[in-house]
Amino acid sequence: MDVMYFAWVRERVGLPKEKVETSAATVAELIEELKSREDRYAAAFADLSALRVALDQELSDFDAPLEGVREVAFFPPMTGG
């Protein structure tokens, strides 16, 4: 699946988008997988209360299932307007 990062999450991870092969069942499991890869992911996902997730461009939750999901995006709370 495509995993996307925005704002300071993108800066900490060091890239805007990547393909990830995963068997994670939920967003939370995917985050644990990413965190165990490298320090930059651990830094980006250190505080989940400061993060939001979208699945296929709809806001979702960390306990949401990933089955059938093509695009996961992580970003801080939005500041539009």
Partner: peptide, 14 residues
């Protein structure tokens, strides 16, 4: 519209 697009539209300001 203003309230929702501040917190629910994916924009980030730097």
């Amino acid at each position: 519209l203003m309230d929702y697009l501040k917190s629910r539209a994916p924009f980030w300001k730097k």
